[in-house]
Design a binder for these strands. Structure first.
Lengths: 274, 274
DNA sequence: TAGCGCGTAAAGATCTTGTGATCAGGTTGT
DNA sequence: ACAACCTGATCACAAGATCTTTACGCGCTA
């Protein structure tokens, strides 16, 4: 498994995944004719792609910042199944489409069960194949879409996705790229986010067991948030679960009437009663 | 099975959320043989499905609370395209799989571009078809996650899966992660749950013989529930069996006009009383 | 009434998180 | 190309919070 020439095509992309609306695809296949036809279609669509002739490591795939992976299992023989499983489990956010020669129902079922999003049998039309890939990517993207770039304000903090920065009283918090991504993710959701979830959506792949990266970044964020807006608290810990973002004024001393601070159950639009 | 989607909406509701992990599928097809084979597989998987012989309106589909729609475009003829487009655009959270007879590349491309998640050509194997549907749903679920877990109310208690917490009168019960998991599990099921069952579903592995952890947690839960909602009892012991969750007003002497909570005949402890 | 299951309570073990520091790798400016 | 600088990944440790285990006595069933 050689991570040949795995430098990312585009270096500067600050965001891991919000890179763009365009398809970023890697094709693992050794059929020159197939690649030629496919390349023509991909070029015509102005799609960024990279062709591989040997399986890339998971880390290499991460570095490529892909939306989708198109793979011919024949390239790897029996080891292909393991590879498919590893890629799908480590990169749950990556659309994986298998395009390979004649196969049995059992094989296709196995591939799909391992996490592949689609299975296309060769020979096939490039146009159709690309549609299948796009359909798979479309799904994943729907999750990212709501993270549009509208500025939002929480307490004294303003989050500016267009500037990749957050502010308090017109003063920048001087967040680094990753810090901002985490703040942006948290602030865009009013529920508790588990660490694994945060990691997966920011780093782009599954979190290793015992990784404390999220904690460390939350600490840095809290530090900067506190020094910019001392009277508010924003990121709340849910022990054993994860973190939740909600601007709350720091109850500084006098206990006023009740702390109705909990916005939770007040608005159960979807509550059921029995 | 008849297309009356009412039970899903009005009914005992808590089922709606618990079933969140399972596939809820509607099949729009007129081929009896196809349906027969497919039904067998779906039954074997314990999957909830509904078969339709005529296109349902978008609103009807919403009422069915589906994860996926499997459709044979042949049922509608040329109008099928328009239907496909409308369903896909109005219900972006629904996985739509087309399974129809022989088609041209152009038709398949059109279907996928209109928003279908996959296109399977008949004749096909039921097993494979279901895998394709599951792959589409799997991908979808990632995007729909936040909306899936709805809040639920029992007596004076509100359970908020999105906040990993329960409330009574806008006040948090301060449940720990594990306490919440158990309450969530219990409240989602009307029947008596054996200790082993609870343990296995919360801890994730089999309970050791003689382990009292479940009892201890039930005690803590009862304590917090009682102090937050003294006039109700929620977790009931079934001696020698396990526990059952049902909100019941504490009949402290005079029977006031209570909710329709009728403990009498409703006490049929069946698995389907809902 | 005897035996077992269950409620209750507390102490100890274990797991989580907060925090500061260090190290390696990449980026920027010259 | 080189070097200063910045960022992100890990580690170790401490403080808490939570979970498990154990013990005892009462209530339920037979």
């Amino acid at each position: 498994m050689t991570p040949e020439g795995s430098e990312a095509v585009v270096g500067g992309a600050p965001a891991a995944q919000r890179a763009g609306n365009r398809l970023r695809l890697a094709v693992l296949d050794r059929d020159p004719g197939f690649m030629l036809v496919l390349s023509n279609r991909l070029d015509a669509l102005g799609c960024e792609y990279r062709s591989l002739t040997a399986p890339a490591t998971v880390d290499a795939l991460v570095a490529m910042r892909l939306n989708a992976l198109l793979v011919d299992l024949a390239v790897m023989g029996p080891a292909g199944w393991e590879y498919l499983e590893r890629v799908c489990s480590r990169l749950p956010g990556l659309a994986v489409v298998v395009c390979t020669g004649p196969s049995s129902v059992a094989q296709r079922v196995r591939g799909l069960r391992l996490g592949a999003d689609a299975w296309v049998t060769k020979p096939c039309h490039a146009e159709e194949l690309i549609c299948v890939v796009e359909a798979a990517v479309r799904r994943h993207r729907r999750a990212e879409m709501p993270a549009l770039e509208a500025a939002a304000m929480f307490g004294e903090i303003t989050v500016r996705p267009d500037l990749y920065q957050a502010y308090a009283n017109d003063m920048s918090l001087e967040l680094t790229a990753r810090e901002f991504e985490i703040l942006h993710l948290l602030s865009g959701s009013d529920r508790v986010l588990r660490r694994e979830e945060i990691y997966e959506r920011v780093w782009g792949y599954a979190m290793a067991h015992g990784d404390r990266s999220v904690d460390v970044f939350v600490r840095k964020l809290r530090q900067k948030l506190r020094s910019a807006s001392p009277r508010w608290s924003y990121i709340h810990t849910h022990f054993g679960v994860g973190y939740r973002f909600t601007p709350e004024p720091e109850d500084a001393g006098e206990p006023e009437l009740e702390l109705v601070t909990d916005p939770g159950p007040a608005e159960l639009d979807t509550a059921f009663a029995r």
